[in-house]
Each structure stands twice: as structure tokens, then as C-alpha cells.
Design a protein around this nucleic acid. Structure first.
Lengths: 337, 337
DNA sequence: GTGAAAGCGCTAACAT
DNA sequence: ATGTTAGCGCTTTCAC
């Protein structure tokens, strides 16, 4: 069932069918109707590959999301989709697994869909310029940037919070409440992750408060998921290390940590204060409500699109926007008793 | 940067480049190396549209996921991906918004990628045969089926729990514990949703236990999300209706309901037992741990792929598999006091 | 307003 | 082992 078959069946040429299908004005109403109804009856679906192959440009913007079903992303995705649409472009989203290569994916999409630009949601922090070679359209990194890589700043855009500062701020909240022995829940990774950045903020906050970091208070989870966070917290608790507060590098792990604390007989915040960074919707529905520094998802999505379109349409060069996390006060932290 | 450019630069023909790129054996090692290194340096990325346009078949299987970042799906997606790979096929996933049309998406993918088959993860329960016209490859509905539609059974496959029976079972647990005034938290939808199916199971369980359903005990949430579930539960509580237990059609809404109960001074399960259906990982990390009937995600993913490949490879016709939910005993239900 | 024909980038015969 | 060539299904000039 190709456009040719349609043309033959309607007794018109392929170009006429193409015109009808693409809502071109130069077709007589009669023919248009005839073709349209024939198409409806025949279950004809245009072949997108052929379509994008032939066109030299598009108004498509690619969105590459790293990490299937990361709840943190869903709001950002919605915002990005809405904004791209509103600007008259079309969003083409591709989700990839944590181990896949977002650059390769973006490069393929770029060729396939003739993209105008790309937004990466989540990704590695250490690109090299060579790796980025295959990407020739403007792109913005949303929720991550190139802290550990060697990309020239003017070659890409980014929208992020300052992860180290956010962690500092979170830990400072605990210090302000009188806590001195503050544990930290991180994800075991190579040194080039968001977990590391936030961990450094934790260390800095402690030192600024005149507290010597204590390695025994650092719980290292295998991954970023709740099961790992739970296990790491349990290990920390069972180690006998003493602490009155805990900073988790993510909401998800904080939730697991709170569970672990209760399972070991420690209440929150009575027996231990807990604070985190992220701001998942979910964190508002646990008890106690999690106190967390929220990444401003709507703003991040909106700004990512805005910057990308500015670059695409030549209104500006690449930019690196730093957005402010917002402290959502829950009930998981309290003054040290 | 097309294959032609590559060919010219290397001084070979396009077919040679194509052979190298597709790992064909009939190329001399010398030429292969030359082409390969040239390709690496040039950031050349093959155009997938051109590729799939020319090939008449593929080993691609499409996965259309309805609902961006539904946490329930992430495990199933991983399983499906793994199984498809293991069978020597390639998974092509497309996520669509709740309001988009999974059939159109599947049909487009089918043409574009020359799919061998499709798996729909989440979707409408009321397809008509006409709507399915554009889909010409075998497909299986995973986690939903066509209860409210008119599809001939032999025209498609499905893998689901029996939602009404699952709800019955969940509510029966409550009845067994002595509860008589059992509230129900549903999603306000048209009549053709999973929420309705589970609601019917709730009604049946009550009647079977000789309990007359009481409309005042039904909390209707606007959507399936936690915010709506919370609001609906609050309304129910504020209405003054009396109940000692609550059945929620989903884990997410149950979590919100538990929060609402506590916010209104009711403890769980002391002041109200709560049971649900789904089995999100998340539900194990709240307090009290949610008691819920888990959909067997791994099994559902595995079986969906198995059935699809059986049909594709002609080993069997379409099948409709019913899988058993597994009761995960948490701490959210208790005998009526 | 409509049709004929070129060609998008690639693969797969078919030659050599 | 390598090159030549004919399309895949579609859009888009360019004629008429």
C-alpha cells in the first residue's frame, strides 16, 4: 500500500495524492475529497522514512532521554514537549537505557529526522569534543553539564542547578539545626557523576562549618535506586557509626533511607533528620514528608527549549543557564536534640 | 556527508562502503580497514531513513508505551527489551502521551521500520476492528486487553491479569479481616478503563460477602495520579462517611490515600486498612509498607515477547494469557478492631 | 489544477 | 573482491 497504489486507485497522479496528504492548496476540492476518502478506506499510512529521506529540512527537535522511566524526568518532558509545540516545532523523543550512548542516538536522529536541534535530558558529564563530532546541530544539556569533560563552553548549552552548591545548601540546613554528625548517602560511581558533585558539596558544607568529615558516615549505594539506597543505609546503621542527620544525594535514595531508619528503630526526624535533593512529586506523599531541594523542573524545561530555539533561530549563541533549586520544607528535619 | 562522499574520499565504490558498514564478509581486510578509519574520522553516521526505506524486511519489533514515565512500566520495558534481544530481534521503543493514539503510532512505526510485530504497553480497552486496520503485523497488548471493544479474539494477543478478579481478591482480604464498611478509591474516567474493571471487582466482592455497596464510600479521583488520589480521599474523609478499610485501584493512589488518612488523623492500618493493586517498587518503601496485589511484571514482559515471536514465526496463533497477581503482604491492613 | 520525472541515501542484485 | 545500477516511497520542481 504505497502512494502509488493510492494514485492508481483514484485515477490521479502520485503528486496529486502527495499534495492532498500534505494539505497543499493547489488541488481541486473534488479531487481532494475523492483522494481523502479513498485513503481513509484503505488504511494507507505514509512511510515516514521515505518522507524524511526526501525532505532536506524539518522543524523537528530531538529529545534524548537517558534512563527509562526516571520519574524525575516526566514533568520536564511534558514541559519541553509543550514548549516545542508552542513554538511551532515538533518534538521527537527517544528514550535510551542508562548504558546506551546518547550521542550516537542523537546523531542518528539528526540524520534520520533532519533535526534542527537536540535536547539531552540526563547524560554523561564528561564529553570530549571528538565524541561530539557526529552532532552538528545546536544542543542543550538539561539537568547535567560538562563539568568533567573538555567541551568548549561556546559549543553547547546547558541548564542545570549547581549541584555542589545545592548539596552545600542542604547540608547547611542541617548544620543550622545544630547537627554535627551528618551522614551522607551517595551512589557508588566513577568520579564523574552527579553523585560526586553533590558529595563534594556535602564535604564543603561540613568544612565550612568547622566539622571534619568522617568517612565512616558515608554510605555508598551501588546504584541510584531505592534498593541500593536501602541496603547502604542499613550497612551504615549496622556499622554503629553515630549521626543525628543524613543528607541523601537524591530523593529516591532518601526515601529508602527513611525506611531503613525506621526499620532499625530510628524515627525521622526525631531519631535522625533527613534532607535530599531533587524534588520528586512522590516525596510529598511519604511520612514524614521529605524536606528536599527541588530542581525547578518547569523552569528547566522551558529554558532549555528557549535557549535551543534562540540558538537555532540565530537570536543568540550558546548559553549556560544556572537555575536555583527551591527548598521544599517537609517534616523530615528537626533541630538536634 | 553521505555514503557517496565516503566512497569518493576512500577511492572505492558505494557498495564497498556499504559492505564494510554492514559487516559483510566479502571485503578485503585492507579496504575494510581503510574505509573504517575514514568513516571514524569523518563523523559519518548512516541515514537510517534511507536504510530502512530500501530494506524490505527487518528483525525489528516495536514497543509502544502509553504514558510517559509510568513507573509501573519500567521493569516490564527492561524485560521486554532483554527478551527481544535474546531472540535475535531488535526492539524499537516509542513512548507516547496519554492522549496520543497508540494505533497510529504503531502503524507509522510498522511502515517506517518494517516491523515484524508490535507490543503495546498500556492502551485503550475498546478498539474496533476498523481502527486496527492500519496494523498488519501481529501484536500483543501487554497489561491491557480489549474487554470493552469488538476485536475478534483471534486477531490479537494479550497478556493481563484479570483486573476484576484481582480487585475481588483484594477486597476479599479486607472482608476476611472483618471489614464491612470498605471504601473504594477509583479514577474518574469514561466507563471503559482499568479503573472500572477493578471497581466492578470491588462491588462483586462486597455483594458476595453480603455487603450492600454504599455509593458514599466511593472516592472518585480526577485522574490516576497521586494529587488527585489525595484530594479524592480527603473529600471522602471530610464527607463524614464511615469506613474501616479502603481499597485503591492503584498503588500510586493508595500511597496518596495513606498520606491523606494520616493528615486527617487516621493511622494505617489502625484507623483504616488500605490495600491496592499494582505492586510498584515504591510501595515497599512507605510506612506502613503497602499491601498490594502485584502484577507479575517480569512474567508479563517475558510472555508478551514469547507469544509475539510464536505468532511471528508461525509456531502458534494469537493467544490470550491471563497471569496471576501475587499478594505482597505489607503492613497496611489489619483485622477490624 | 494536474502529471511526469528527478532524486533523497542507501542496499542488493547483478556484473565483472 | 569490487563496481554498477536499479529501485525503496516519497516530495518537489518543472511542464503543461
Amino acid at each position: 500500500m504505497t502512494i502509488k497504489d493510492r494514485a492508481r486507485l483514484c485515477g490521479v497522479s502520485v503528486s496529486t495524492v502527495s499534495r492532498v496528504l500534505n494539505d497543499r492548496p493547489d488541488v481541486s476540492p473534488a479531487v481532494r475529497e475523492a483522494v481523502l476518502s479513498a485513503v481513509r478506506e484503505s488504511n494507507y499510512v505514509p512511510n515516514n522514512s521515505a518522507r524524511s529521506l526526501v525532505k532536506t529540512s524539518s522543524d523537528d527537535v530531538g529529545l534524548v532521554v537517558r534512563g527509562v522511566s526516571n520519574p524525575f524526568y516526566s514533568d520536564i518532558i511534558k514541559t519541553i514537549g509543550r514548549e516545542i509545540d508552542a513554538a511551532g516545532y515538533t518534538m521527537v523523543m527517544q528514550q535510551i537505557g542508562a548504558s546506551e550512548d546518547e550521542i550516537a542516538c542523537g546523531a542518528i536522529m539528526e540524520r534520520e529526522k533532519k533535526l534542527r536541534g537536540l535536547i539531552f535530558l540526563g547524560g554523561r558529564w564528561d564529553y570530549s569534543p571528538e565524541e561530539l563530532g557526529p552532532i552538528t546541530v545546536p544542543f542543550v544539556c538539561c539537568s547535567f553539564t560538562n563539568s568533567f569533560g573538555s567541551l568548549p563552553r561556546e559549543s553547547y548549552s546547558s541548564v542545570t542547578i549547581e549541584d555542589d552548591l545545592a548539596a552545600e545548601r542542604a547540608v547547611s540546613e542541617l548544620v543550622r539545626l545544630g547537627h554535627r554528625r551528618i551522614a551522607c548517602l551517595v551512589a557508588e560511581t566513577d568520579d564523574r557523576s552527579i553523585s560526586e558533585l553533590r558529595y563534594h558539596g556535602y564535604l564543603k558544607a561540613l568544612r565550612d562549618a568547622g566539622i571534619e568529615p568522617d568517612g565512616r558516615l558515608v554510605a555508598r549505594a551501588g546504584g541510584f535506586n531505592m534498593a541500593d539506597g536501602y541496603a547502604a543505609t542499613v550497612r551504615l546503621l549496622d556499622s554503629g557509626a553515630e549521626f543525628t542527620a543524613l543528607f541523601s544525594i537524591s530523593d529516591a535514595m532518601a526515601i529508602a533511607a527513611i525506611k531503613a531508619l525506621y526499620d532499625r528503630g530510628r524515627s525521622v526526624p526525631g531519631g535522625c533528620s533527613v534532607i535530599a535533593i531533587d524534588g520528586l512529586a512522590f516525596s510529598e506523599y511519604i511520612r514524614p514528608t521529605l524536606t528536599t531541594l527541588c530542581q525547578p523542573m518547569a523552569e528547566m524545561g522551558e529554558e532549555s527549549v528557549k535557549i535551543l530555539l534562540d540558538v537555532i533561530e540565530g537570536r543568540s549563541g550558546n548559553r549556560h543557564l544556572i537555575v536555583e533549586p527551591v527548598l521544599r520544607r517537609g517534616a523530615s528535619i528537626a533541630p538536634r536534640v
